[in-house]
Design a protein around this nucleic acid. Structure first.
Length: 509
RNA sequence: GGGGGCGUAGCUCAAUCUGGCAGAGCAAUGGACUCUUAAUCCAUAGGUUGAAGGUUCGAUUCCUUCCGCCCUCACCA
């Protein structure tokens, strides 16, 4: 039947409900129990009576939820429903146990409707738990049909555009988003427990800084001012450290105007935290503790080995301590025929990099402009990154690609910075923060120079941030963790769209 | 933005290669049935084959353009 006709039939049922005095889109009424309560009240089905054995004074439960299936047979029916506890239960509706009106209401009930039922629990002849309804009504009429009961909603486009249907139809999708919510709650608790203060900084910025990415532009009418949606909260959070909030975190959305992919959504959730009187080594320990805690708390690992987590048909071992490897060491171990001395020879590195460019003229052009550290970084990305499976801290980032990170005291062209790689993906990025306002000024100037030389993604020079540093920031380490990517790992999701409730889609029409 | 794939009933899928009346299951409608579990049985109805154009006696099928989605490369987290 055509969609309009299916809807028309249900509209007519809604009208019939009104005639029976049942508002098809009624006002809320108290609901005393959840389906979880039913299970908790009598944990074992064996302890329930059969239908004839239901006692006069048996406890009456009152549950409300969405109808998932109806099986009618003459003067009786079984109806499967799910409620806010996300548990499912059966109702048994018999003409004998219901008022005439409630029986008529059942005749006007479709899969997808929200219903309210009261009655005692019992055990069916097949040994299942069910509620025998002594009263039954429709709370909300669904005008549209749900997807097919066996296959559910499979079309990815419909699943992302109509997530409400996806959530009704697909259990694994519900599970992913429950896990996401639990992960975020865990992270907040983790930082709160350690004396970190959650703060909210502006999402509309007048400068583009804190990361290198192209921004979204928006406009404030009253001030006639173009603003950028933030690409990172970093510089505001460090201003707060200057202000004396020595442990701060922000868990929120960033916006980057770049391509979409299974690992990139234009708006994504990031955790950033700053910890005064700590170093990047402390951050590695804290990160390890937090993610191991998450994996344990959420129970996403194998039952017999909770730190081995299935991911993309493979298994990731989260058992600490995680390896800490410099990009130099990683490249040396990975690339055959490369000697340690070669890594100090810029021209030799450039030659190796050309060999990895695969004839791509754009890459080759970039290679010619790269310095020593950037060349090692390039070789790392080309040869090592995708092979890093278990959680690994990568260090040895050049200062030139780390404009907000403190220099290493022994190796001034290397930043005290690490990235955490898991399953070939970057999950976290952290460093000792640069507190020297004069050095920070030089870094901003280098960014400005790079922009003038044609580099598209550079940071704006933030004069007020320098001013803040001139007031003195305590020695601080800071980190950003991509929450969506972390949730992808925890839920074995191949695409970022599977862990974002409403991923960006082109308008359908 | 480049390359590849996909789009058929409300949903899940056939038919497309090799052009010849567009089909099934679920859902829906009418009927039978007081223990179903993807209930069963009988009957009925449901289509702008993503859109537009072209080739052809004839197009879901072949060609072109456009729209949307997926994968991939590039940029990035």
């Amino acid at each position: 039947m055509a969609e309009e006709d299916l809807i028309q039939v249900r509209r007519e049922k809604a009208a019939s409900l009104r005639e029976l005095g049942v508002h098809p889109f009624g006002v809320a009424q108290p609901v005393r129990h959840t389906i979880s309560d039913l299970l908790r009240a009598v944990p074992s089905v064996d302890d329930l009576p059969d239908e004839p054995g239901i006692a006069e004074d048996a406890p009456v439960f009152e549950i409300a939820g969405r109808v998932l299936a109806i099986r009618r047979f003459g003067k009786g029916a079984f109806l499967r429903m799910r409620d806010r506890s996300l548990e499912e239960n059966q109702l048994f509706l018999s003409k004998a146990a219901l008022s005439d009106r409630d029986w008529q209401v059942l005749g006007l009930t479709d899969v997808g409707d929200y219903v309210l039922a009261r009655g005692p629990q019992f055990r069916t002849r097949r040994g299942d738990r069910a509620l025998r309804a002594s009263s039954f009504t429709v709370l909300t009429k669904a005008l549209r049909p749900l997807p097919e009961k066996w296959h559910g909603l499979a079309d990815k486009e419909l699943r992302y555009r109509q997530r409400y249907v996806d959530l009704i139809a697909n259990e694994d999708v519900r599970r992913v988003f429950v896990t996401r919510t639990k992960a975020i709650a865990f992270i907040r608790r983790f930082f709160d427990d350690r004396g970190f203060m959650e703060v909210e900084t502006p999402m509309m910025h007048s400068l583009v800084s804190g990361a290198t990415a192209r921004p979204f532009i928006t406009h404030h009418n009253a001030l006639d001012l173009d603003l950028f949606m933030r690409i990172a909260p970093e510089l505001y959070l460090k201003r707060l450290v200057v202000g004396g909030f020595e442990r701060v975190y922000e868990l929120g959305r960033n916006f980057r105007n770049e391509g979409l992919s299974p690992r990139h959504n234009p708006e994504f959730t990031m955790l950033e935290f700053y910890w005064a009187h700590a170093t990047w080594n402390d951050l590695m320990e804290l990160t390890e503790e937090m993610i191991v805690g998450l994996v344990r708390e959420l129970g996403v690992g194998n039952p017999e080995d909770p730190l081995k987590v299935p991911c993309g048909g493979d298994v990731i071992d989260f058992t600490p301590p995680w390896p800490r490897v410099s990009m130099r060491e990683a490249v040396l171990a990975r690339m055959e025929g490369v000697a340690e001395a070669d890594l100090d020879d810029v021209e030799k590195l450039r030659e190796l990099a050309r060999g990895q460019a695969g004839g791509d003229p754009k890459k080759e052009g970039e290679i010619e402009r790269m310095g020593h550290g950037e060349l090692i970084g390039f070789l790392f990305e080309e040869t090592v990154e995708s092979h890093l499976h278990r959680p690994t801290f990568i260090t040895g980032f050049p200062v030139s690609v780390s404009p907000l990170a403190r220099r290493n005291d022994e190796q001034p062209d290397i930043a005290d910075r690490f990235e955490l790689m898991i399953a070939g993906r970057e999950v976290a990025n952290a460093f000792n923060e640069l507190g020297d306002p004069d050095d920070q000024r030089l870094r901003f100037e280098a960014q400005t120079a790079a922009r003038e030389a044609g580099v598209e993604e550079t940071m704006d020079y933030d004069e007020d941030y320098i001013r803040a540093l001139e007031h003195g920031m305590p020695p601080t380490a800071g980190e950003g963790i991509g929450i969506d990517r972390l949730v992808m790992l925890l839920t074995d999701s191949p695409s970022i769209r599977d862990v974002i409730l409403f991923p960006l889609m082109r308008p359908a029409d």
